[in-house]
Nucleic acid binder design. Structure first.
Lengths: 147, 147
DNA sequence: GTCGTCACATCGACCATCAATATAGTTAGG
DNA sequence: CCTAACTATATTGATGGTCGATGTGACGAC
């Protein structure tokens, strides 16, 4: 264990506590975390197979089947055929799905921004400085996720 | 709208995306966010009323009743009487509950620390610098939450 | 004492998730 | 070609977590 390992664990613990707090403080009953993440994945990656989505989102295939069924029911995504493999189902984000995703992001960012206003100037400055780094961390994750 | 409002929204959006990513990347099926947060609240604040817990955690009283029932069943908390008000139920964290909470924190921090290792030295430095500020933000929330 | 309020439990209804299994389609070996 | 193994999705049955509505007993002001 190097000298910096302890410091990193402390940092990680603080970030984890912050993450849980942020999620709960801005709780949003419109879409679950997995639902929102799946929409975001479809938005970024375009139409894709149901089972690929399941792997990417870290849920089982039956869960993804149920999730896609709900998305379809709510008009946020559609099921389509894969012309090259008739077993497969291609899931596509609808315009309505994209809109829901955008409005959710805006809504949550607004709420969290209000909470960030509680910080003093100095603290806010270092947090703003770290936002880019955290964003890079999120985006470089091979399995992604995001909101 | 001041000049900095846009920047704060951008920061908030990045933090929100990070929070969702962190929670999902370190997903933990042992305890739900609400369950973990409730245990943490009991750890910090000591024994307290079921309905106070419900308010603090932002769930309805029936949800908290169900949650406390599960905690009791799993040996993580106990129900007790309030000698001054026989209507009330005082919820108390058990040693087992405290242990579960500690091990969960350690486990999650370890996982997140591994993810933080992906950052470059510079990014890691600014993130470590921001951890304290984010921690303060979490702790100054009147309604709290934490992990 | 009585009546309004409070604290908690219960009930019925969803949504979300999982593991296990069923069904339909594909592909490789013979 | 056929068939067996594999793959993609759907279905089933279980658990957990949440809610609103409602019930029950306790409290407190008058």
């Amino acid at each position: 264990m190097t000298a910096s390992t302890g410091a990193r664990l402390t940092t990680a613990a603080a970030l984890d506590a912050f993450a849980a707090w942020a999620i709960r403080s801005t709780a949003d009953r419109e879409l679950s975390l997995t639902t929102a993440s799946t929409l975001a994945t479809l938005d970024r990656g375009g139409p894709q197979r149901l089972s690929d989505l399941a792997v990417r989102e870290g849920v089982t295939q039956p869960s993804m089947t149920a999730l896609v069924t709900r998305l379809e029911r709510d008009g946020l995504a559609t099921r389509g055929d894969d012309p090259t493999d008739r077993r497969a189902v291609i899931v596509t984000l609808t315009d309505a799905g994209r809109e829901v995703l955008v409005s959710r992001r805006t809504r949550r960012a607004t709420r969290l921004a209000a909470l960030l206003d509680r910080l003093g100037d100095e603290d806010r400055a270092v947090v703003e400085a770290a936002a880019g780094a955290l964003s890079r961390l999120t985006l470089t994750d091979p399995s992604r996720g995001e909101s």
